[in-house]
Amino acid sequence: MSKSILALCRRPPYGDALAREGLEAVLAAAAMEQAPVLLFMHDGVFQLLKDQNAKSIEQKSVRRNLEALSIFGIDKLYVCQHSLEKRNLNCGQLRLPGIAIELIADPGRFIAAFDSVLSF
């Protein structure tokens, strides 16, 4: 059975454990050949920032989980344009090797196109 699955990543990378646990669930799904599409919105856009120094607050970097996505053939991530602009960020500050980023102007319509949504 094949379903289109969206993972909604809304949590700040180190402010909420569900940021990391959400990515772990995404990787588990991808390993079972149910790779979801990922949409980052609200404070979740901070997960994608390059130059994170997680060690300085005794945390594991979420970047490692994100970089593992390409192993499972996920080569594109979607980011809510409004969330990014509201936080005064731009695409150039969100870089992951081998993974493209596409901005989404209308997240409501984007989300509605999926069969299931995993909300983190």
């Binding site: 059975m1 379903k3 669930a25 588990a28 799904a29 149910q34 299931s116 949504v117 995993l118």
Partner: peptide, 16 residues
Amino acid sequence: LGQLVDAVVYSDRLVT
């Protein structure tokens, strides 16, 4: 987490 993935696939509705 495989049990979560399985549930997504086999349920009509997923409510968080």
